Each structure stands twice: as C-alpha cells, then as structure tokens.
Computed example of a mutant assay.
Amino acid sequence: MRKLLAVAGILAIALTGCRGTSPDDAGSGAAPATVKIMVGGIDKVIYLPAKLTEQLGGFRAEGLDVQLLTEPSGATAENVLIAGDVQGVVGFYDHTVDLQSKGKCITSVVQMADVPGEVEIVAAAQAASLRGPADFRGRKLGVTSPGSSTDFLTQYLATKAGLTGADYTTVKAGAGQTFIAALDNGGIDAGMTTDPTAAKLVSTGKGKVLLDMRTEAGTEAALGGLYPASSLYMDCAWVQDHRDQVQKLANALVKTLRWIKGHSAAEIAAKMPREYAAGDPQLYAQAVHDSIGMFNGDGLMKPDGARNVLDVLSQFSPNVKGKKDQIDLAKTYTTAFVAKVPA
C-alpha cells in the first residue's frame, strides 16, 4: 500500500509539472512557456521594441518566458533560426523573402517598421567629395556583413546611381565600435549603420549623414518606396503549431509599439538597460529620438512595402535573382495575429 501511495504521489508531481509548462496555464501561477528569440544586434535602436517589451514586462504579462539572445547581424541570426536553436528572430523582413528562395518557409508575424532605420554615414574627411551614391565609385563601403540587408541596400543605391559592383568595394564593418573604428581608421570611406552608432559618429564629428532612411520621406527619396524592415519572423510550421504563443508574442510587441507612440524619446531611453547608453544617457536618448519615428505603432505589414522589398532582392540577392515570379509574398508575412491584438 505504501508503494502504491508513493507511486501515486510521484505521478501527481509529474502531472503538476507538465501542467506548469503549458502556455494555456500561463498567467495563472504556472511556469510560463519559454520562447527563444535571436536579435540581430540587441542594442541597435532599430530592434529596440524587443528589449523594451521585456523591460516593460510585456512578455510576462502575456504568460511567456521570452529569452532574448543576440548576434551581430541579421544574416547570422537567421542561420540560428534555420538550425532550430531559437523559435524566432527579430531582424529585417527581407530575410523571409531570401529564405523562401532557398525553399524555407519563414514568415513575419509582427512587422515593427516600414523603413530600414539605416543611415549611410560618410567619414568627415571624405564628406566634401562623397556627397551621394554617384560618388561611390572607387570607394570602400561598409556593410554589416556579406548577404546582409545593408549589403543589398548598398548595392541598390549604387545601381540606382548608375554604378556596378565593380565600381566600389564592400567591406564587412559590423556595427558599434567595429564600424566606428573602420570609419575612423580609413578601413571604409562610408557605410550603412544604425543608431546609436550613427549618433556617436555624428556627435564626435567623425561622420556625417549622407542618406537617412530612418523616416518614410528619407526612405522614399533613397529607395523610391517603403522598405519594411524590423520584424519578428518565425518558421511557418512553428507558427502553425504554436498559434497561442505567437498570439501572445504579437500582443506583447504591438502593445509596446503603441506605448512607444505615446512616450517621448527620453522616457523610452530611460526604460532601456543602463549599459545601452554606454556612459552617455543624453547621447543615447538622442539616438532614440532620431530613429524612433521608424516604428509603425500597429505591427502591420504594408503590402506595397513587401513588393518593394521583393523588387530590390530580385535584383541584388544571388538567391532571389531569376526567381521573382516564384516567390509567394503571402507566405512571407501574416497580419492574422496583430489583427487580433486587443485594442
């Protein structure tokens, strides 16, 4: 009898443990479901909504335990997703199009920005002679990494100005201090980066903004249309099998996007981890101010923007060239989850 009671007790504990891992039980005192999300540079302002949601307690409020990880570039982050090591990536939407050309179904479930949030920065010493993409000829241009969104956008800007890939050299410059060092020591003449890196270069006088794609007007002037960028994208099969968790992620992120629209840059910066300011809170707040307008506030994809991304990639992505008519854009994003976020 004692043995039977012991076995029953063990089974009861085991069943209680199983109930604790169910996302349906989250928020009722049970252990929340864990979701790993890779961010393509967690301290970049373009991906701020992910960390801000964590800081505001948004994921926990939805009954989720979200683990935010980081890689220096979106190209690296997507590889971790494909390997199955994470359930989602906060990165540029264009990766979903590029990966579909390789037979992978990846979809954006929350579209946080309609513009890249990138700036083309020129070294101060080169600013007099490098005043636009037409002056890229013979120059060394920094991109995050080969095959990254900054690589494709740089190629597009150069081609639009009448240049070919043989007219300039792209250099892997990374972001943050590696990018700053490359511009400072002459490793690159100009390059594409984001805040807070851009704010640091401008504030120190080391760089000047050549093209500003942090706003709709600047993006349309540079690219001829919107270019949806920062998003949460996930494997299509995982989304289908975990709709409850995806909905909770959408709820949390969209609520943060709405919160951003109702608060100042200083208030937003104050909510972020202290180390993101790198010892200069005022400069970090300025970086947030310069980029915060890129976030759309609703998480919705603009169909015209998605088509513009496909147009760009069909010209410059080795994977998408020649496959434009084979890409099903409807599978690269969904608005089903953000449409259900409570008002």
Rank of each mutant, 00 (worst) to 15 (best):
A75W: 07
E78S: 14
Y156G: 00
T164G: 15
K140R: 09
R131M: 09
V89Q: 04
F179P: 07
A181C: 13
D167P: 11
Q67K: 15
F59Y: 15
A128P: 05
L56C: 11
T178P: 06
G84R: 04
V115H: 02
Q87A: 14
V90Y: 04
G162Q: 13
D167E: 09
Q67S: 15
S73G: 11
G162N: 12
S148H: 02
S108K: 00
R60D: 14
R131Q: 14
D94C: 12
K102N: 10
L141E: 09
P116T: 08
L157S: 07
S108W: 00
G132F: 04
G57H: 12
V109E: 00
V89G: 04
E71N: 15
G165R: 12
N79F: 08
M112S: 11
L64E: 10
G63E: 11
Y156N: 06
L183G: 04
L69R: 08
S129I: 05
F92G: 01
A127D: 01
F179H: 03
G84K: 09
G138Q: 04
F59Q: 11
P116G: 06
F92C: 03
D135V: 02
T169Y: 04
A123T: 12
R139E: 02
T107P: 00
A83K: 13
G147A: 01
G63C: 15
E62A: 14
A166I: 04
E78M: 13
S129Q: 13
A61T: 14
P146V: 06
G132A: 07
S101V: 01
F179N: 07
Q126K: 12
Y156S: 11
R60P: 08
A77G: 12
A124Y: 02
A124G: 05
V171T: 03
L68D: 10
T107N: 00
A173H: 09
V115W: 02
M112I: 09
V80W: 03
K140N: 00
V115L: 06
D94T: 12
G63L: 13
E78K: 14
T96L: 02
T164I: 03
V90P: 00
D135K: 03
D85Y: 03
S149E: 07
S149R: 02
S149N: 06
V119S: 13
P133G: 07
D151A: 11
K104A: 05
S73N: 14
T178Q: 12
D98V: 15
G91E: 05
E71K: 15
A123N: 10
P72A: 15
K104D: 03
T154V: 10
C105Q: 13
K104Y: 12
I106M: 11
V86E: 02
S149A: 15
F152Q: 11
K160Q: 14
G58Y: 06
C105H: 09
T159M: 10
V143T: 11
A128G: 09
F59I: 12
D114S: 09
G103N: 04
L68E: 12
T144G: 07
G103D: 12
T164P: 09
